[in-house]
Design a protein around this nucleic acid. Structure first.
Lengths: 353, 353
DNA sequence: TTGAAAGCGCTAACAA
DNA sequence: TTGTTAGCGCTTTCAA
């Protein structure tokens, strides 16, 4: 009997503990106001720092809040001032091995600045031409703005966002008018790389690249052409193989390069470069002895190759950081640059010695 | 003068158009109610299907809604019934090349079922031991539940979630009590693979694996041991090299295997396997002639190897689908299985011929 | 079958 | 400096 009573007491205590531990975050601004004998307006002001309030009550409020772990309900706050405290992050749902680390690192940058503004990130994946997930989050007004991780030449997502009136920023470039864009200076980077290779004495180049439906491939292609153009007649010949989507098409391009005695193969990205390296290894062609290789992008997938590959390096995280900052600036009505170009680093390595 | 008037008219019209196009989604339930001469309660009922309502008015409401593209404000709806219509998706912010595609495909599954329930996905990245992003979304009550993409042996995120009272499901296994988990049947899969290899006449195995702080590596290790155990004395010897985090440690393990005349090297994942293959290629060791190779996981990173690699295959998307369904079931109070194991496929290829 | 009114938790005029 | 009050856009009793 005594035992039973004890049990009862125990479990009652347990319940209380559970209540305190788990439901602690269910305190509302009214609870705080009541406990302190002030109005909730006062509490609101103490927290937000907006409006006049005496330092004394401010302190009292803050203390109470800290002590009882009060956290304002962000959703309610949002409803009151027409914000969601979310930004949308759009990535291709079918992005491949090469792109994923890029998006991940961009996202780290995005989330860092988002968190600092008390914002969270809502994911939306677009597939091929299916932008229904994107439409959802804007139609449902679940976000205050959107960052697009990659753009295509004729990008439905971008068009949709533009006509929807939702603030957005794209990472990469866009041909659509008036779109706020953050990109690396691919053109100059590629230009510089090709001309440096030229200075090293290389005379014949080939560019092997991915789909021209991606803006980034277009700009890299332009940079390559510009770089060569600047060399003028000094460059005997150059070959360009764009739209190489499959391993076969890359292999085919490589074969032609070898046959044409190209001195240096430049790849628009690392996936292509990987195919090129595989093909060269397969055919027993020595790098950089028989042919040199460089890539316009540097990711982890090339890490294991010997010799290591000369490439351009961009900072995806910074892209994300700047994009997110720009978005916030834009949302809050500040003037923002329509197109912002970030830097790059040139990494000269063994493959072009 | 006439011209001026025309301009005025034009721009007035333009404004209206803009209003219709861009602000169309600013219609509220009150607008609909008023336009239809009913109360907003009625509109609400027509949409939700809850409560009695005549078929006639229901139709009228639905028609109006369709016509004027009314969309309920999800946030307001959420505030009214204590839901956020968001679920949290937790992934390691420092996940490597191997894991990224896995998470991506999981997420596709998650988002598919989430969307069907009118939910969106809020990202939270955890780094090393930093779970602040996770804490944010639960403390700020931005989500109704959480799906954890990967677990560590002593997982702070899981502990935190458990004591927070937030409903959650983990993908993978967890040693923490009472955690709802969705995993592949790694143990049986690994067991089956080893015993099949055994049946093919292989007598000496080595397991090279990643960090034992990851639950998945522990279970794969167990499966390997179980598989061999079942072969009893028939298996002359087996070597195990776990916690191989760096390429060097893998290379070292491979060297020992070769020296020890191991017939088949089994890898816990494809990253390890890649290192193994590199090392073997480097040393000019023939696969499957001199040594056979198999992996407990099959991803795209091994696609380019010849011969192709025997491995186990899991379906990440299904993992995501099931995890999300389970989470919703749990949130809505249904009984759910504490631990659910999904199947796998065995892919026997050239590397073990 | 429908509607009035209260409430979800917060912000922000406007008064005091 | 502080409080009163009216929303934000929706759901849900409770009456009619």
């Amino acid at each position: 009997m005594a035992q039973e009573e004890k049990n009862t007491t125990d479990s009652a205590l347990e319940n209380i503990t559970v209540h305190l531990e788990k439901e602690q975050n269910k305190i509302t601004i009214d609870d705080v106001a009541e406990a302190l004998g002030v109005s909730k307006t006062t509490v609101s002001r103490a927290i937000s720092g907006k409006g006049r309030i005496s330092e004394g009550t401010r302190q009292r409020v803050m203390e109470y809040i800290k002590r009882y772990h009060y956290r304002p309900n962000v959703v309610a706050k949002g409803l009151a001032n027409s914000k969601t405290y979310n930004i949308g992050w759009v990535i291709p749902g079918d992005s491949g091995l090469t792109d994923l680390p890029f998006f991940q690192r961009c996202m780290i940058g995005v989330s860092e600045v988002a968190m600092a503004e008390d914002y969270d990130i809502l994911i939306s994946m677009v597939f091929e031409r299916d932008i229904s997930q994107l439409k959802r989050i804007v139609k449902n007004r679940k976000v205050d703005g959107v960052i697009v991780g990659r753009t295509l030449v004729k990008d439905e997502g971008v068009s949709y966002l533009k006509e929807s009136g939702m603030p957005f920023v794209v990472i990469g470039s866009s041909m659509v008018e008036d779109v706020i864009q953050i990109d690396n200076d691919h053109i100059n980077a590629c230009r510089e790389l090709t001309s440096i290779l030229r200075i090293k004495g290389i005379k014949s180049f080939a560019l092997i690249g991915g789909g021209m439906n991606q803006v980034v491939n277009q700009t890299r292609y332009q940079g390559f052409e510009l770089g060569l153009q600047e060399q003028g007649a000094a460059v005997s010949q150059s070959r360009v193989y764009m739209d190489c989507e499959s391993e076969q098409s890359v292999e085919h391009a490589v074969e032609e390069c070898i046959r044409g005695k190209v001195e240096c193969i430049v790849c628009t990205d690392d996936k292509i470069c990987q195919y090129v390296l595989n093909k060269l290894a397969q055919d027993g062609i020595d790098i950089p002895g028989q042919v040199k290789v460089a890539s316009f992008y540097n990711s982890a997938i090339l890490d294991n190759y010997h010799p290591s590959i000369t490439s351009l390096q961009y900072d995806p995280k910074e892209l994300g950081t700047v994009a997110c900052k720009t978005l916030f600036d834009y949302i809050s009505g500040k003037e923002v640059q329509r197109k912002r170009l970030l830097g790059y680093e040139m990494i000269l390595k063994g493959s072009t010695q």
